[in-house]
């Protein structure tokens, strides 16, 4: 009889691990309080930008390196990806922010107004130049998680809210695992979804600002996700007026037609993070924890799934993000 594995949590990490384990022929079940992905997982609220280069400006090289393989992994696991790159802009007096960002970025090109007009005509009305990172992609997190969940069910992976764990336990519960992981903390994030018939953006846009940075991800059908705050608080509810005002104000500064957009949703959750804001595959004598993906859930879950499967199925030690606490 082949070994069985129990994955706790059906957020982006749990599902990615379930997919990777299944592909490698392992028998796996997923236990989750809801039995399926949903709003209880912080990846449900994510932006879904597969933007390792942009993230590399504020994080470690290993995140960029592993993140570059994320788009291929998601595509081969049935996700609908948009490969249109990322555009980065800054308002008039914040141009130095853009220069600093460019200096710390790999693989970016400067766009003048003519070039910007070809990619994002609506931004060319407001911005003289921008940065363009061609290699990046984005996806819709909720669609992606739901689709992967259905796909795994089709493959015979069992999802349950009550089943008892059996075999080796791989704990991917995100912030809920702070009962076991004492160095895990929450970093609160708030987001807004709006709908506008006037604004057209074809790809994720980042607006740099020293205090109110913003990203806007087009979700199709005139909807846009505006994100996200980053507050040192483990609170998973209670989006504040200040945060929402800041996000909306930044969106309005990016494109004045957002003023007439319809407010569809205000969301909030807290990202699980370790003190270095890097993920960790932590092996203890009882279970393996895969956690702390911070703001890099969709970028890093594929690499962590691969490394965890290597560790568990082939006893191959992960090249990064690994701690042995046995």
């Amino acid at each position: 009889m082949k070994d069985t594995f129990t994955i706790l949590g059906s957020g982006v990490v749990g599902l990615s691990l379930a997919a990777e384990f299944h592909h490698r022929g392992a028998s796996v079940q997923v236990i989750d309080p809801n039995g399926a992905p949903g709003s209880h997982a912080c990846s449900w609220w994510a932006g879904g930008m597969l933007a390792p280069e942009c993230e590399g400006v504020i994080t470690e090289e290993a995140v960029v390196r592993h993140g570059r393989s994320a788009a291929d992994w998601w595509q081969s696991n049935g996700a609908d990806l948009s490969h249109k790159g990322t555009v980065v802009v800054a308002l008039g007096r914040d141009q130095d922010e853009l220069k600093t960002f460019a200096k710390r970025l790999n693989n970016a090109v400067w766009l003048d107004r003519n070039h910007l007009n070809k990619l994002e005509p609506h931004l060319a009305d407001h911005f003289d130049h921008a940065l363009y990172i061609k290699s990046e992609a984005h996806l819709n997190p909720r669609q992606t998680l739901s689709k992967l969940h259905k796909r795994l069910q089709r493959f015979g992976v069992a999802f349950s809210d009550k089943q008892k764990p059996s075999g080796q336990i791989i704990d991917c519960r995100g912030l809920a695992a702070c009962d076991h992981l004492k160095d895990l903390r929450g970093v609160k994030g708030e987001m807004v979804v709006v709908k506008s018939a006037e604004v057209i953006l074809n790809r994720p846009v980042r607006l740099l600002h020293p205090r109110f940075p913003l990203y806007i991800v087009p979700r199709g059908d005139g909807t846009f996700m505006l994100g996200a705050t980053q507050i040192e608080s483990s609170e998973r509810k209670r989006p504040t007026l200040r945060s929402v005002v800041e996000l909306l104000n930044a969106a309005y500064a990016l494109h004045s037609a957002f003023a007439e957009a319809e407010l569809l949703e205000v969301g909030v959750d807290a990202r699980p993070a370790f003190p270095n804001n890097l993920p960790c595959i932590r092996r203890t004598s009882k279970r393996i924890y895969v956690n702390g993906l911070f703001r890099h859930g969709f970028i890093l879950a594929p690499a962590l799934a691969r490394m965890t499967a290597d560790l568990v199925l082939e006893e191959k030690q992960p090249e990064d993000f690994y701690e042995d606490h046995r």
Binding site: R185, K188, I231, S233, S234, E235, R238, T240, R242
Partner: peptide, 11 residues
């Protein structure tokens, strides 16, 4: 901003 409810910024 960090306090939230129930000392959510404690970590």
């Amino acid at each position: 901003r960090e306090a939230g409810h129930d000392r959510a910024g404690q970590d």
